[in-house]
Simulated scan of single mutants.
Amino acid sequence: MFFQHSPEVWAAHPGLVAGLLYAEGVAGKPRADLPLAELHAAARQRLTGGTEASFPEIQAWRRAFARMGLAPTRYRCASESLLRRLRTDGELPEVHPLVDLGNAVSAAYAIPVGILDVARIGGGIEVRSARGDERYLTFAGAEEHPDPGEVIFADPDGRAHARRWTNRQSGWSAVRDDTATILVVVEAMHDGAARDVPRVLDAIAGELARGWSAPSRTALLTPTAQRFEF
């Protein structure tokens, strides 16, 4: 299996820093408490200095969405949506331990974190422009087709595992109760991304080891090393 960005994506977004994490043996509940409260508190503390829209991590994704022709305040990257919900509702919903961990880390670092069930992504994922005939499954179970030119997570079977890049994940490969092997995708474009993306990977890897005794394999993708195989 593989994960990669198309050359077109790298050319259009040269500031992209992408980190990948592969882990097996993460089924069931963690055997140690996850630091969700601490991560949420870190995000709330940062929000006391201004809304999420002022964060450089979020501003970089807003500029990227604008370059893609998307209204940044209509289509928000995942980390901005989480921070906005945390600021307005005071908390994040509990979904699944792995998802809750990814969401908490994403909010604390203001960086999008996607977690995919490896058993459900076919032969691999390429982040590329959509043709328009790919199939996207909403969490409500409805099928959609991405707009031509929209950046998606595409597998070789024509399924879109994310729409509008970091805006909305698909139900195809969402974490479920029987998920045992995961691929974590961390992407950022702000000036400190090369420093922060490895920190996000380390934070997640540490909690997977502590909670599930699961070792992780990580990698950083670059324009000269565009593919992660697992």
Rank of each mutant, 00 (worst) to 15 (best):
V9N: 07
W10N: 05
P14L: 06
P14S: 07
V17Y: 03
V17I: 10
G19Y: 01
L21M: 01
Y22K: 07
A23E: 04
E24N: 12
V26Y: 01
G28A: 07
K29A: 15
P30G: 03
P30Q: 04
L34E: 15
L34K: 15
A37G: 12
E38H: 10
A42W: 00
A42N: 14
A43P: 11
A43H: 11
A43C: 12
R44E: 14
T51F: 07
A53D: 15
P56F: 02
P56D: 12
Q59V: 13
R63N: 10
A66Q: 14
R67A: 11
M68E: 15
G69Y: 01
A71D: 13
T73R: 04
R76N: 12
C77A: 10
E80L: 12
L82I: 00
L82Y: 03
L86G: 11
L86S: 04
L92K: 11
E94R: 15
H96T: 11
P97M: 07
N103S: 10
V105P: 02
A107K: 06
I111V: 06
V113T: 10
G114N: 10
A119R: 14
A119C: 09
G124H: 01
I125W: 04
I125V: 14
R128N: 08
R128D: 09
D133C: 03
D133P: 00
L137T: 01
T138L: 08
F139C: 07
F139G: 13
F139S: 14
A142Q: 15
E144K: 05
H145W: 04
D147K: 13
P148M: 05
G149H: 02
G149Q: 07
E150V: 03
V151T: 13
V151R: 06
A154W: 02
A154R: 08
A154I: 03
D155E: 14
R159L: 11
A160M: 09
R168K: 12
S170F: 03
S173I: 06
A174V: 13
T179L: 07
I182H: 03
L183F: 01
L183H: 03
V184L: 08
V186G: 05
V186R: 00
A188F: 01
M189P: 02
M189Y: 03
G192Y: 02
A193V: 03
A193C: 10
A194F: 06
R195P: 07
R195E: 13
D196P: 00
P198N: 04
L201A: 01
D202I: 07
D202L: 14
A203T: 15
I204F: 00
E207H: 00
E207T: 01
R210T: 13
W212L: 04
P215R: 00
S216Q: 02
R217V: 12
T218V: 05
A219N: 04
T224H: 12
E229V: 15
